[in-house]
């Protein structure tokens, strides 16, 4: 537990001193979404229809931008190899890095989303669904993405490879989350979607840290 909290506070401290890494994906998220009214149509009917998909795809892409940063600098300065000598289990260090990644990307995306939803004329019940879907499903994205990030950290140009490895795994999350927001916009009950997203999160929490720590060890041994 101490290892976990220590890793999180260290990563947040590093991010605080170099806020560009956190802000860039957020700015990207906002810009991508604000291009759609300009590119397609500013009419409310059209925008409400595409809003769940647009916001969620933008969230996926902005998460992808940040996976690259998850282990990269620790790998380059040698901190990552030092982490394998920790007295606590290595998997807790990995968990800590995943949690801090979510605090730096998923959480701000979720907090920002109602604003962007309003920009696309999403009605209030839809906004709640949107924010809940992001809160519930972005941790899954961080967990799944960490596996790709861990596998590619030793490569010089890992960015595109992470996308190819990880995006197919994001598809179920995308389908469920957009359906949930869609249901919310129509004023329906989206408890079922939330349960499914929660189930995905539980599965990812069980498997991803194990896979990521194995992936990081493979990357380190080359």
């Amino acid at each position: 537990m101490k290892t976990l909290l220590m890793t999180i506070s260290r990563d947040l401290k590093v991010a605080y001193r170099n806020p560009a890494d956190v802000i860039n994906p957020l700015v990207f998220f906002v810009i991508v979404i604000s291009l759609f009214p300009l590119g397609i149509s500013p009419s409310a009917d059209v925008l409400v229809g595409i809003a769940p998909g647009v916001i969620w795809v933008a969230a996926l892409l902005s998460c992808l931008l940040s996976f690259e940063l998850m282990f990269r600098s620790d790998y380059e300065d040698g901190s990552l190899e030092q982490m394998t000598f920790g007295s606590g289990p290595f998997i807790l260090v990995i968990m800590g890095k995943i949690v801090s990644h979510w605090i730096m990307t998923g959480l701000p995306l979720a907090l920002l989303s109602p604003l962007l939803g309003m920009m696309l004329f999403v009605p209030p019940p839809g906004l709640t669904a949107l924010m809940l879907s992001l809160l519930l499903a972005t941790p899954t994205l961080s967990l799944l993405g960490s596996v790709g990030a861990g596998l590619t950290v030793g490569l010089r140009k890992g960015g595109v490879l992470v996308a190819i490895l990880v995006l197919p795994l994001f598809v179920p999350v995308l389908i469920l989350a957009t359906a949930m927001v869609q249901t919310g916009i129509q004023g329906g009950d989206y408890t079922g979607h939330m349960l499914w997203l929660g189930a995905l999160l539980a599965i990812a929490t069980g498997i991803s840290p194990l896979a990521t720590s194995a992936a990081v060890r493979i990357s380190l041994s080359h």
Partner: peptide, 30 residues
Amino acid sequence: FPLYVGHKPGVKDLLTATENLTWLSALQEG
């Protein structure tokens, strides 16, 4: 675990000397 010092410095540029050393030691010594 053994103590390992490799080619890479193992310190983060954005953290101070104290923060780096505290983190590295706390990680390995508890």
